[in-house]
Each structure stands twice: as C-alpha cells, then as structure tokens.
Amino acid sequence: MGEISGKSFIAESLPGYSSDIGGQIGMLWELIKAPLIVPLLTICVYICLAMSIMVFMERLYMGVVIVLVKLFWKKPEKRYKWEPMKDDLEEGSAAFPLVLVQIPMFNEKEVYKISIGAASNLSWPADRLVIQVLDDSTDFLIKVVLLQYLLL
C-alpha cells in the first residue's frame, strides 16, 4: 500500500489520487457526499414533510373550531343581562360612573386646544367627569400658554 506523505491527505493507492490539494479536497468531497450528505438531506425532507402535515392539520382544526363557535356560541345579547341606564331624577347623575380622562402632552402647542376641547365636550355629567392634562413639556412658553388656556 502507498504511504501517506506529509503533503497529502489521501493515500496514493486510492483511485483518483492527485498530488495537488484542490484535487484531494475534490476527491474527499466525492467520497463523503453519497454516504453522508444524501441521507442527511433525505431526513431533512421527511422532517419538512411531517411539519407541513402538522401545520395543515392545525389550520384545519382551527377552521372547524371557528365555524363551530360562529354557529353555536351565544350572542352577547343572550349571554349578558344588561339594561340601559335609566334617568333617575332623584339620584341625579350619581347613576353614572366617575370617568377620568387623561391627556398626555409633550411640547404639543398645535394640538392642546383640540385635545382639551374634545375631552371637555364629552356628553357626560360634569360632576362625574375628571379631566387631567399631563404636561411634560420642556418649552417654558408652551407651559405658560397651556396654563393660561386651562385657567380660562
């Protein structure tokens, strides 16, 4: 048998032997391609096929669940017993819950009037409505203008 020299990777007795490194690497690739790479790729194909079938089954299941929910689920009108709020002259606006509206602002000179005006024009009893303007502006002029607007 041929000896393996320090300059080669493959024994000289193997068929297809060449003395250059590129040829030796090419021969190594040819030797390991069929017994190692092909079975590995085959396993990967089977795994992908199994995962595709699992995704299809999950979508089919979810489709059936959605159809059943749409057909047999109770509508909100049947599920909840609710009544609209009645106007009680004796209670006044105490039947309404207390509502807090927070308006965050940061250097927004252009929109502060629109935002505060929209919150002020809500159709809700004034004694049950709290409006907070949360201003983190760094511009002193905007803070002054906003404060003047709120005090009016």
Rank of each mutant, 00 (worst) to 15 (best):
A118S: 14
L40K: 01
G63D: 09
P97A: 12
V45A: 04
V45Q: 10
F106I: 13
N107H: 07
L122W: 03
P39T: 00
I53P: 00
R128L: 04
Q132M: 08
V65K: 04
K86G: 02
V45D: 06
K86Y: 09
G117V: 05
E77L: 03
E12S: 15
W124N: 00
L147Q: 01
E3A: 04
L31A: 15
S115P: 02
K7R: 14
M1T: 05
Y80E: 01
S19W: 12
I53K: 12
F72N: 05
I47T: 11
M105K: 02
K70W: 10
P104I: 05
M57D: 11
A126R: 00
M27V: 09
A34D: 13
F72S: 10
A50H: 08
K7Y: 06
A119L: 07
G117M: 02
I142D: 01
G63W: 01
F96G: 05
M1W: 07
L146I: 00
L49A: 04
L14A: 15
I66D: 03
E91M: 06
W29C: 10
M54H: 03
G26E: 05
F9E: 11
P84F: 01
E58R: 08
G26N: 06
Y149L: 06
L71N: 10
L36H: 12
G22C: 08
C44Y: 02
Y17Q: 01
V144R: 08
I32C: 09
L141D: 10
L41N: 15
Y46G: 03
S93L: 04
P104V: 08
Y149I: 11
S5K: 14
L49S: 05
I47F: 02
I43P: 02
Q148A: 14
V38W: 05
P15D: 14
V144D: 15
P39Y: 11
L146G: 04
Q148G: 00
P76N: 15
